[in-house]
Amino acid sequence: MDDIKENTLDKKTAIKVRYYRFRNKLREKTAGLSGSAGDIGLEIDFAALQKAEALFAKATEDYPDWVLGTIQQLVNLHAQCLSEPKIRHESFDKISHIAHDLKGQGGTFGYPLITSFATSLYRFSSMKTDVEDHHVEIIKSHIDAMRAVIRDRVSGDGGTIGVELARGLDEIIKRYKTRNTN
């Protein structure tokens, strides 16, 4: 009995690679009347895919307008930070929430710079320290940078314009942070 156990253990420790070869359950579920056997590649219904593609293309086309509406919400919240300093933390929470949504979308619709700027805005607006005037100005810089991306349709990495926008935002953040520490 012990010998058997030992042999089994020896075999187990000697195994370096395990291959799992399962039947194709996904194919069984989706092959329909064509059956699950065979290596023929089945395709998604072309007409349906065309319709979905059109829906996607429309959303991509609408994205700049949609995002401008969202940026306007940020503009309003920034104005609220200035006019109602007592509730700045609350406004920052709302800004952070919007930035979080924005950062997930830009890349999908061909505007990765929106994602980078929104990511930076999200990190910045999620801070737990006291919100002071220079912090509010940094929020404004993010909004301006995103607005420029959409206004000038700076898609992709934006080439030279994209680099300039990113550098401009970095410099403003640094300047305001330095002002705070001096």
Binding site: R18, R27, A52, E53, L55, F56
Partner: peptide, 27 residues
């Protein structure tokens, strides 16, 4: 990779269904 299209997403779904890849377990 983003930005993706529905066509590219659909192709990846079909590829995943059609290619029954074995699983490999190593260290």
């Amino acid at each position: 990779a983003k930005p993706f299209t529905m066509k590219s997403l659909g192709e990846k779904i079909a590829l995943t269904i059609n290619r029954n890849r074995q699983f490999v377990h190593t260290r």
